[in-house]
């Protein structure tokens, strides 16, 4: 049995008497330690799928299990990073990072040490006493990542976490996210609508389509492709994904697991 299993997930919304099928029999298996990107156009159900995995939303039918257990509510073992950061503006950086540690039974010194360690990991040492409003968007997202890592989760869910950032900042954060995912050995499920972002980060890209929301195919990214954004391997995988969105599925069976 896979670490994370989605089986025949269905989710519908009825609005003004009109029914939208947001997830239409979605099935997916994810192994421990994988970096998965959910890629697709806006409205194809990426957030809905992620929220079902994270326990924020329930399915109409089908099941989501993590480590053999049905997901029913959010858990501190699986941390979600939101696009708008979700930092508490009335707390400074370090006490934002300590937030998740407060519910745990650890000493103040221990919490302080852990928080500083992860602030350093995301490159924000020296920013402890700042408030979120005094940071750039990229720095705020780094704080949110440090806060998530501080509670030592098994899985990190990220919903378009870099969507609000400019291109250069976004690439820096992608570099760091890749480094962190290797150092910390976390399972990461990352939602994006940016093809290059998905190719750069993912071990496997789950390509989704809208109306009804479904998985079109899953593209495995060979390890050597991600090293650099201008390498042949990277461009090759990127082009394949581009073509997938142009509805040429059948010819690329070799990229589909």
């Amino acid at each position: 049995m896979a670490y994370i299993e989605v089986k025949d997930a269905c989710r519908k919304y009825t609005q003004n008497g009109k029914e939208t099928v947001v997830l239409d029999n979605v099935s997916l298996e994810i192994e421990k330690g994988e970096f998965i990107c959910l890629l697709g156009p806006s409205g194809c159900g990426k957030s809905t799928l992620l929220n079902s995995l994270a326990g924020f939303e329930r399915l109409n039918s089908g099941s989501v299990t993590i480590d053999g257990k049905e997901v029913e509510k959010p858990s501190v073992k699986n941390i979600t990073i939101f696009q708008n950061y979700g930092l508490l503006p009335w707390r400074n950086v370090i006490s934002n990072v300590k937030l998740g540690l407060e519910a745990k039974n650890i000493s103040k010194e221990e919490a302080d040490k852990t928080a500083r360690k992860f602030l350093e990991l995301v490159g924000l040492e020296g920013f402890e006493k700042r408030y979120p409003r005094q940071l750039s968007g990229g720095q705020q997202q780094r704080v949110a990542i440090a806060r998530g890592l501080a509670v030592d989760p098994d899985i990190i869910f990220m919903d378009e976490p870099f969507g609000a950032l400019d291109a250069i900042t976004r690439m820096k954060l992608q570099d760091d996210m890749l480094r962190i995912s290797r150092e910390e050995k976390k399972t990461i499920i990352f939602v994006t609508h940016d093809i290059e972002e998905a190719v750069f980060l993912a071990d496997r890209i789950v390509v989704m389509m809208a109306d009804p929301g479904r998985i079109k195919s899953i593209v495995k990214v060979p390890a050597h492709s991600t090293a650099d954004r201008t390498s042949q391997g990277f461009l090759h995988v990127r082009d394949r994904v581009f073509e997938l969105f142009n509805m040429k599925t059948e010819e690329y069976i070799d990229y589909v697991i």
């Binding site: 858990s75 699986n78 941390i79 979600t80 939101f82 979700g86 998740g100 407060e102």
Partner: peptide, 26 residues
Amino acid sequence: VYLKVASNFGIKQPALTWKFILPAAF
């Protein structure tokens, strides 16, 4: 998003009120 963060980090009442709801609504 504050309530999502709180439930994600397992923050329960009364801490939920003192640490999230009151300051967020303040």
